[in-house]
């Protein structure tokens, strides 16, 4: 019996991704707490291990030892399905992301499409989990999540379409190789395609924040309004899995920003390209995401929709039309 080496490779990658997502989420929590601490004139966790580096381990242990309580009257199937549906698509997204010239689990020709298809399932997980937990706060939160995501996928996808037009491919590996070289080759500075490229990046970034339910768009969790929103009834690892899924989605979102706009694994000066540049760019973006969370108050739902429908979508469309016109003319 021969083992299909391609399948084995894929399996190993998936195992690696799951391990990465779990540790990454744990250490993003640490980063978030440290960063929040320094933003707020504190020093953050410091007791468990050097610089509090073992804090995530302690947190994880605490979450895992907690009983998974299913509230009376909740739909226990949907309640259990929710976290799974948030986590699984996030893992799937990792499969097609090229981290460097050689590190990619599966180089799909429709990689871009696959990622955004998977990413939109995550909403369903939140919706079902919230609905299943039979809690009024959770139901309000579910309604918010859905309309928020519908509103934000539109400008995001318009930007993606623009990028596909500019690079001429949906294969993520090719998207990166088309930006080979110094930072002036990167899509964010490709003014020949459209002078609005930095704006497109901003639109993408804002939509990414909204898609991943991060502050200032964390209406779904909104702890001062909805207690914990969709997660109100989730104890222990039920909550933990949601949390991991949220951080995995942030990683996917920032990875996509890195690939589409910031030249993937390319070095800004054209030297030593590789995985390290990809990680540096991605974590710099994640740092920014956390920074934003601890700086801004939360927006309200209607101003978020206003922003989407009245600002982001028109600007994204203008960019699309401008880009296509320029591509046709030049």
């Amino acid at each position: 019996m021969t083992i299909d080496s391609e399948l084995l490779r894929l399996l190993l990658y998936v195992v690696g991704f799951i391990a990465f997502i779990a540790t990454n989420a744990a250490y993003l929590v640490w980063l978030e707490r440290k960063e929040a601490g320094h933003i707020q004139c504190r020093i953050g966790p410091k007791e468990v291990g050097p610089f509090g580096l073992l804090q995530p381990v302690a947190d994880g242990l605490k979450l895992m030892t907690k009983q998974l309580i299913i509230p009376k009257g909740a739909d226990s199937f949907l309640f259990r399905l929710g976290p799974v549906l948030v986590m699984t698509p996030a893992v799937m997204c990792f499969v097609t992301i090229p981290y460097s010239d050689t590190i990619v689990a599966r180089n799909l020709d429709v990689g871009l499409l696959a990622i955004f298809a998977f990413a939109s399932v995550n909403v369903l997980g939140l919706l079902l989990g919230a609905w299943g937990s039979r809690n009024k706060y959770a139901v309000i939160s579910a309604a918010r999540v859905v309309s928020q995501n519908v509103a934000y996928e539109i400008p995001m996808l318009i930007v993606i379409v623009t990028m596909v037009m500019v690079t001429g491919t949906m294969n993520l590996h090719e998207v990166v190789t088309s930006q080979n070289g110094g930072f002036w080759h990167w899509n964010i500075f490709r003014f020949s395609a459209s002078p609005l490229m930095p704006v497109a990046f901003l639109i993408y970034f804002v939509c990414m924040l909204a898609e991943t339910n991060r502050a200032p768009f964390d209406m779904a969790e909104a702890e001062s309004e909805l207690v914990a929103g969709a997660f109100t009834e989730y104890p222990g690892m039920g909550f933990g899995v949601f949390f991991m899924g949220e951080y995995a989605n942030i990683v996917v979102g920032t990875s996509m920003a890195t690939i589409l706009f910031l030249g993937g694994w390319n070095c800004p000066f054209g030297l030593w390209p590789g995985l390290h540049w990809f990680l540096i760019k991605m974590y710099a973006l994640i740092f920014t995401v956390i920074w934003i969370r601890w700086t801004f108050p939360r927006t309200t739902f209607y101003s978020l929709l206003n922003l989407s429908w009245k600002v982001l979508i028109p600007v994204a469309f203008a960019n699309l039309i401008l880009t296509s016109a320029l591509l046709k003319v030049l």
Partner: peptide, 16 residues
Amino acid sequence: FVLDLGGFSPLLYAFD
């Protein structure tokens, strides 16, 4: 108040 609005950080400056 800013905490109610979802901004956590000003609280700690005010407490300082």
